[in-house]
């Protein structure tokens, strides 16, 4: 059994985001990048399945920068092999639609039984990579998944709907899964483990496939107008607590 985990870097969303001068991308000069939280879940699920079944796990990424470090973290988390698809340093803003044919090509070469990636990534207008890969590879695909288990030629998983309702689905392999939550929360990796991997060479591959045609040139970004939103309470924590208490009293809520 062979599992491929696709990992993507996202801007750290607790930082302030600004739009660049031509309005096509975020200003990346000071922005930090982190593993997309849903891909983090996919990585954890892949390692949990490895521990449960002895499956081999390969982690894949296609990043202009930060890809090597990202994949070394995946090695520290317990994946067996990694592969960085070279996209060119200048391509810092690549949508999932642009990258999908590159991942398709790499996956056709690796021929895994199961592909796991995060259910969504918030940094483009497509977000959802798994359903695109399902269509490109003509493999069955399920998104918004938690709790993946592997059986003989099948994966059993849970698809989550609103209201806490979910369905158990049995999917023939090979399949692509967009993961929402792993069976257990992602594990912590000690810094020492990462330092041990500093000298490890991350294998890279130059793609033969072209980027997928997307709508990047037809998309403009803007900061939403939140005026007309919240009335802001000012002061230190004591002052804010006092004002919240007053509001609750006025409304008969306490």
């Amino acid at each position: 059994m062979h599992i491929a985990a696709i990992l993507r870097l996202n801007p750290v969303l607790t930082e302030e985001l600004e739009v660049d001068e031509d309005g096509r991308d975020i200003d990346r000069e000071w922005i930090g990048l982190e593993l997309n939280p849903f891909d983090d879940q996919a990585l954890e699920q892949a390692v949990l399945l490895k521990e449960a079944t002895g499956a081999k796990v390969t982690a894949l990424a296609a990043e202009a920068e930060g890809g090597e470090r990202l994949l070394k973290t995946a090695l520290a988390r317990g994946v067996d092999e990694v592969l960085l698809i070279e996209v060119g340093e200048e391509n810092v803003q690549l949508s999932s639609r642009a990258r999908a044919p590159l991942f398709q090509e790499a996956l056709e070469g690796l021929a895994p039984d199961l592909v796991l990636t995060g259910v969504l990534s918030t940094d483009d207008i497509y977000g959802e990579l798994a359903p695109q890969l399902g269509a490109l590879l003509d493999w069955p695909q399920v998104s918004a998944v938690s709790n993946v288990a592997l059986g003989d030629g099948v994966a059993t998983l849970q698809q989550e709907y609103s209201g806490g309702i979910s369905a158990r689905i049995e999917v023939q392999l090979p399949a692509v899964v967009g993961l929402q939550a792993a069976t257990q929360p992602p594990r912590y990796v000690a810094g020492s483990k990462l330092r041990d991997l500093l000298k490890v060479e991350v294998p890279t591959v130059e793609p033969g496939a072209d980027f997928g045609a997307d709508l990047a040139d037809a998309t403009e970004l803007e900061v939403p107008d939140t005026s007309g939103g919240a009335e802001m309470l000012t002061g230190d924590a004591e002052a804010v607590a006092a004002r919240i208490h007053e509001i609750l009293v006025e409304r008969g809520l306490v």
């Binding site: 999932s96 999908a100 207008i125 497509y126 959802e128 359903p131 695109q132 269509a135 399920v142």
Partner: peptide, 22 residues
Amino acid sequence: SAAGVDLAPNVAIRTGRQMVGY
């Protein structure tokens, strides 16, 4: 929704259409 996340990007590729999410 969960179904929309499955379907919109998948059918976009299958039918050669562009799509916009969210």
